[in-house]
Nucleic acid binder design. Structure first.
Lengths: 337, 337
DNA sequence: CTGAAAGCGCTAACAT
DNA sequence: ATGTTAGCGCTTTCAG
């Protein structure tokens, strides 16, 4: 492994000069600097991030907290795509990413400890139980953080606009003549609460009163659970004309159940998803759903974090809301006709 | 940040003793050691991976090379799931993972340079262009590597058994009475070549001679491309009775085309996928496909790499082949009836 | 059983 | 314009 000393020896200069040349410092003869840089390149010099970190306290490493609760973490397209964009944007900005976990190597570290252990410059927190004391400790620590889809006081966050998303869906459904709208919610998180609240509010604005029978507790990404909820909804004396699902994936469980009962989508019952996964456009019928802009969310979160890291003085806690868009597919019947 | 020195001061001992206690070295009074460890815990001590690395040359960090060629890297379930298992297994073994990339921060590093920069102990290489000189340089370097789905001479590798996979599919199709089998291949990689070879061989064994018209070049994960190939196949004077697709996802492009032509699956035409993504089981009809064991592949690769890292003397280049299994869905018609 | 000291590769303040 | 030097936090050899 070639190090600064090697270059210095070869050039007959001091390591200080080499370091300066490598960083383009101005107090060095441009010719010398140029020369040094050439030699360095020739020798295949690569700086040692860890050694530098020790001096500068900057790792150029971003921690990503991404807990795989339902063991579907990365298989949930919303998160996979978000992670991908976090990774891409980080790389562009000169950072690598490290997954923060409980790291079983050393006798179990907390998230905060793991972050310290790896000296990450900051952490992006997504898809975790935000009530977890460990998460709270991390957020309240000196380490800069940006949370996704959850807001901590005085901390930066990026949230997908669930309020607007649900409202857009309801508005669309009403426009299509639906007033008996059933809502299957996901796991009890703040995102879910926002969606539920937005649902009630949007319905109220349209003068629709929501029957409790139409509100079902479901789970994200679990088709079976949506299937059960669907069965219950279909067995009501007064059926809904449309069912809103927690996400596109779990919606498929509903589809299975609906078809099992010999019903046709959307003729007998309309359905709506959430997320806008790629597959929602590939399968037939194309799913009517709200497309979350997961890529933009990842980019925003990364930029905000890097800003926080690189300008600790001037950067302030920001809250960004990222809008998505309604995808009109073929799963909602127009009742006006 | 509490460091060893702080603990030493508090205990009135030397940093050497503290270090020893923390590592459970035997040449220290057990009581003293115990005491030190308690103080360390109390003070919330977390070791500094970078400082340690500088001394030991071990980062407990595994590089993952995962190039997002089709920009679908993580959205390709086969890879997402594999990455997930690499991550999980690494954590269990006490390693973190770092994505190896061109790291735009410093004036563009090569993969090898990035690996050195981050001092990774080893690299798992998956989903890249294995002909890329940069990849070859990395593989031929002193850094331990394990490749997935590609074999380098004298290097460890884990491969999904594509030979067997295709053979199993063909055997099944023949059993179902099919002899006019069309094959849409994926991007030109060694995996694809294996599958094609296996396809020809399996057909030959069943006395089927494959018409060139039935062999189409397609792309992985691009439904549109499969759609086009499907159209061509359907327009043949002598149509195949079944079409094999590069993967489950791209198969959906075929489905779209087939339905557009007013044909029914599997009554008018049978189809088979590859991968066995979760969705293949959720949509109707359930896709007949070969389920790759991506989780096992990730686990094996990680274990092999760690073995290589921790036992450089005794570990030897190994080649592991991971079997999958046929998923019999509802997309292949039984022609025997 | 415990401690002193060297040094991993690098940066940066401070000479010269 | 260039060089000296003191650590960053840690491990580890060698003394005591």
């Amino acid at each position: 492994m070639v190090k600064i000393k090697d270059i210095a020896d070869k050039c007959g200069l001091s390591i200080a000069s080499v370091s300066k040349a490598l960083h383009g410092k101005s107090d060095l003869n441009p010719k010398t600097a140029e020369y040094i840089r050439n030699v360095a390149k020739e020798m295949g010099y690569v700086p040692n991030a860890s050694a530098r970190l020790l001096k500068t306290n900057r790792s150029y490493n971003i921690g990503v907290l991404f807990v795989d609760e339902t063991s579907s973490g990365l298989e949930h397209e919303y998160f996979a795509s978000m992670l991908n964009s976090i990774k891409d944007e980080s790389e562009k900005l000169g950072y690598d990413i490290t997954f923060i976990s409980h790291h079983f190597g050393m006798n179990q570290l907390t998230f905060y400890e793991h972050a310290k252990y790896r000296n990450v410059d900051g952490v992006i927190i997504a898809s975790v139980d935000f009530k977890d004391p460990e998460v709270i400790k991390l957020v309240e620590s000196e380490i800069p953080t940006v949370t996704i889809d959850y807001v901590f006081n005085d901390r930066s966050s990026v949230i997908s606009d669930n309020i607007q998303g649900v409202r857009d869906i309801v508005d669309y459904l009403v426009k299509m003549g639906h007033r008996k709208i059933a809502f299957i919610s996901g796991d009890d998180t703040s995102v879910t609460q926002k969606r539920i609240t937005s649902f009630y509010r949007a319905c109220a604005e349209h003068g629709i009163e929501v029957s409790d029978d139409f509100m079902k507790k479901g789970r994200y990404h679990l088709p079976q659970v949506s299937g059960v909820a669907t069965r219950e909804l279909l067995s009501l004396r007064e059926r809904p004309t449309v069912i809103m699902y927690p996400d596109d994936y779990s919606l498929l469980g509903g589809v299975t159940e609906i078809e099992k009962q010999g019903l046709k989508i959307p003729d007998d019952i309309s359905i709506v998803g959430y997320d806008g996964i790629k597959l929602s456009r590939l399968i037939r019928p194309v799913i009517t759903t709200y497309v979350q802009n997961s890529i933009e969310i990842g980019i925003q979160a990364t930029r905000m974090l890097v800003d926080l890291i690189e300008h600790p003085k001037t950067a302030i806690a920001e809250r960004v809301s990222v809008k998505g868009g309604l995808q009109i597919g073929q799963t909602v019947k127009d009742l006006n006709q």
